[in-house]
């Protein structure tokens, strides 16, 4: 006899149909696709510590092929996936966040997620200092050198374009208008793989089809 009330996802190794169906309802995925995502989740969550949740080092290992080092963007992605802010990504959080990256997810959701990623201090605005910090981080990541003058010029140009009310910070509305004008900014907010996730990670846990 099972209870179908939401229960803690942490360390949960198996799900019943009601769990999967609830996650499908809360996301862009079908039940089948949620099952497939669970296969991916199992792989990621057992790469270092097999405890049924994804630790930051495990996400880092998957994205950078090494569990070591610091990366500002990885930290931001991890924090946004970790809805409960308990330091690990649980399966339902994984499904919720990936749902934003679905090719059929509304543009609005992608714009909002990207805004939250770039609003490093979570003030409700993307500030000049934050953009600077992120450009410096990407330079370090890619071993590129940029003079201070060029860095300031890139940021000036970006703010001239995005900060319409010229208050030195980018509001959510300004970000939305800016992202719509420059759709390439949201390119990494769509993962075409998510359309074929059942093929990439076939699941035999349930036979739902």
């Amino acid at each position: 006899c099972f209870s179908h009330r939401p229960r803690p996802w942490k360390a949960q190794r198996r799900f019943d149909y009601a769990d999967l169906s609830r996650l499908a309802d809360e996301s862009r995925f079908t039940v089948n696709e949620v099952e497939a995502l669970f296969e991916l989740f199992k792989k990621l969550s057992s790469s270092i510590i097999d405890d049924g949740s994804i630790h930051k080092e495990e996400l880092q290992l998957a994205l950078f092929q090494t569990p070591y080092g610091e990366n500002l963007f990885l930290d931001r992605v991890f924090d946004l996936f970790d809805e409960r802010r308990n330091g690990v990504i649980e399966f339902d959080e994984f499904v919720h966040a990936l749902s934003v990256f679905h090719p059929y997810a509304p543009l609005e959701e992608k714009i909002d997620f990207a805004f939250r990623l770039y609003d490093l201090r979570q003030t409700g605005y993307i500030e000049r200092e934050e953009v600077k910090q992120m450009v410096i981080a990407i330079m370090m990541e890619s071993d590129m050198k940029l003079s201070d003058e060029l860095l300031e010029a890139i940021i000036d140009k970006t703010f001239a374009d995005a900060d319409s009310d010229k208050d030195g910070r980018i509001s959510k509305e300004e970000w939305k208008a800016f992202a719509i004008r420059h759709p390439s900014l949201l390119k990494n907010m769509t993962l075409p793989y998510l359309k074929d996730v059942s093929t990439i990670f076939p699941s035999f846990v349930f036979n739902t089809e």
Binding site: I154, K157, H182, N188, I200
Partner: peptide, 26 residues
Amino acid sequence: VAPVTMNAFELISKSQGLNLSSLFEK
């Protein structure tokens, strides 16, 4: 100095940390 055409967010969005497609590469 040549006019800057680069957009900071275009640069930022190229980070490997933001490229989740590698999660799907087996």
